[in-house]
């Protein structure tokens, strides 16, 4: 069954310089228990897409289209109704663990409040459950640590706290927005392992939002590549990695350092992401695409199915003419 079903989602922001379109008509499906990677550079709209799903857009942002969670439309729900879904159905972990915890409250207070509010636990019970969760996240000496303030924790430990907190009410879907970006490389793999274990144990579907294609390979089943607020390509991770259809995906994959080839000169994609104040008429990637032809600059390619489970939005995909 499809857990999360996003159709034609558009997110725009009213700014002093006019309207900025961060997300332009994105479709997305997450099956129950699945792990999906949403990949894109910064500015590709991937974070705003997820904030729109959570109903957490900034004040000047609006979302249009459809976001269904277990067949319930989320767009248009008021704050009170959303609060019944957050934590219990859908939870989110944010990018920077150094600022995502409230520095003025003890970790225990922050972890237990969701349990008390959503699951109706008594405080003592909630505290015991929180300690158990932290133990499961391999936080050493959790019973003592939980009484401390966030600034007494390291970045990796804080991210564990945040993941534990997000999972505490057993959500069906966990959105992790760049959960490892702000952390040391050695800590990154442990956080990824923790996420994988949580998924296996609780059956929680995980959406991993990242710019780092490297961590996608080991951790996710499906991937969606986002560029300029649009889906460029989607499909199972192993097959996309083996043979990308979209030139942008290829560029991303080529930029990942690998052991099986000489990386003395790592190719990068030249140019910058498009200015979302003035989105281009055609394919958003056309300006940086080595294969772009005239048609690409004027006509937006549709996201079309090319193989079972695989879609691509390109006039000139890499496996042959469209």
């Amino acid at each position: 069954m499809t857990l999360l079903r996003v159709r034609n989602l558009r997110v725009s922001f009213a700014t002093g310089d006019g309207t900025v379109n961060a997300v332009n008509g994105v479709d997305l499906d997450v099956e129950a228990g699945q792990s999906l990677a949403v990949v894109g550079e910064s500015g590709s709209g991937k974070s705003q897409l997820m904030l729109a799903v959570m109903g957490l857009l900034a004040r000047n942002g609006t979302a249009a289209g459809s976001v269904e969670l277990e067949s319930v439309e989320l767009l248009g729900l008021d704050e009170r109704e959303l609060n019944r879904i957050r934590s219990r159905r859908i939870a989110m972990v944010f990018q920077d663990p150094m600022t995502a915890l409230n520095p003025y409250l003890r970790v225990a207070d922050q972890m237990t409040e969701g349990l008390v509010l959503h699951l109706g636990m008594a405080r003592r019970e909630a505290l015991a459950e929180s300690v158990r969760l932290l133990d499961a996240m391999e936080v050493p000496d959790a019973r003592r640590q939980i009484a401390m303030y966030p600034h007494e924790f390291s970045g990796g430990m804080r991210q564990r706290v945040l993941i534990a907190m997000a999972l505490s009410c057993r959500p069906r879907l966990l959105i992790a927005d760049e959960p490892t970006t702000a952390l040391d490389v050695t800590v990154q793999s442990r956080i990824m392992r923790i996420l994988a274990e949580a998924r296996a144990e609780l059956g929680t579907a995980v959406v991993l939002v990242t710019h780092d294609v490297g961590i996608v390979a080991g951790g996710c089943e499906h991937m969606v590549v986002l560029y300029g607020g649009q889906v460029m390509e989607s499909g199972p991770v192993d097959r996309v990695f083996a043979a990308p259809y979209h030139p942008y995906t290829e560029g991303l994959l080529n930029a990942v350092p690998r052991l099986d080839r000489d990386d003395s000169r790592l190719p990068s994609i030249p140019g910058d992401p498009p200015d979302m104040n003035r989105p281009p008429a055609g394919c958003p990637f056309a300006a940086r695409c080595p294969r772009a032809v005239d048609r690409c600059r004027h006509e937006l390619p549709g996201l079309l199915s090319r193989a079972p489970d695989r879609r691509v939005a390109c006039h000139l995909p890499l496996d042959g003419p469209a």
Binding site: F13, T15, G16, D17, V20, A22, G43, A58, G61
Partner: peptide, 9 residues
């Protein structure tokens, strides 16, 4: 949001 799109420049 202006942080991401406006002031970056």
């Amino acid at each position: 949001m202006t942080l991401l799109f406006g002031r970056r420049m």
